[in-house]
Simulated scan of single mutants.
Amino acid sequence: MTAADDALRAAMSRLLAGEPLRTDGALTKKNLYLEAEVSRATMNRSTVVMKEWDIEVARALGEDPDAKKPVTEESKLRRKLRQANKTIRELRETIDGAASLIALLSEENRYLRDREAKRPDARLSDLEEFRAREPR
């Protein structure tokens, strides 16, 4: 048992008793780590204390601590929305990459057409010189 575990347990006792020292007293994990004066990461590393917290809060709210929370329609929709947003981000990145490639190929194509119009005997090796020069 660490000092952080002790601080979290003391904070848990105060919050459950309705006697907070540093917070508004709501039974939230944020209030727990603020009340204990530890970081959120430290609180999350105290897995045993966090399990105790979940059980005690469920009891305080009159819920069965062993019962699984039902999957609601809202949670299903939120999960779908997160997945859709992830897909949108991935597609935007793909589109951005494709747009960059199209712009590069268009510039190279313009260069080659201009080069051919000026010098019909131009070679593809001239394109390497074009690519090597500094961008405008």
Rank of each mutant, 00 (worst) to 15 (best):
L81Q: 11
S46G: 11
L8M: 07
E93Y: 04
E56W: 03
D54H: 06
E35L: 01
A58P: 02
R110E: 14
V71R: 14
Y111E: 05
M43K: 03
T72P: 03
D66Q: 11
T47H: 05
Q83P: 03
A99N: 10
D5C: 05
S106Q: 11
L105N: 07
G62Y: 08
R113M: 13
A122F: 14
A103V: 04
D5N: 06
L124G: 09
E129N: 13
E35K: 02
N109E: 15
D96Q: 08
T72F: 05
T87W: 09
L105E: 09
V49P: 00
K29N: 04
A98E: 12
T94K: 12
G97R: 11
D54Q: 07
A122V: 12
L21G: 04
A99E: 13
E129H: 13
P65S: 04
E134P: 01
L124N: 10
R133N: 08
R115D: 12
A58C: 00
L77F: 12
A7V: 00
V71K: 09
V38R: 02
L105Y: 09
L61S: 06
R82M: 07
E107I: 00
T42R: 00
L61A: 04
T47V: 13
D24M: 06
A98H: 11
G62D: 09
R136N: 11
R59Q: 06
T87M: 13
N109Y: 15
L16T: 01
T23K: 04
R59V: 06
L32T: 01
E93H: 06
R14S: 08
D6V: 06
L77C: 06
P120C: 05
E63V: 03
K76V: 15
A117Q: 10
V48S: 12
A36C: 00
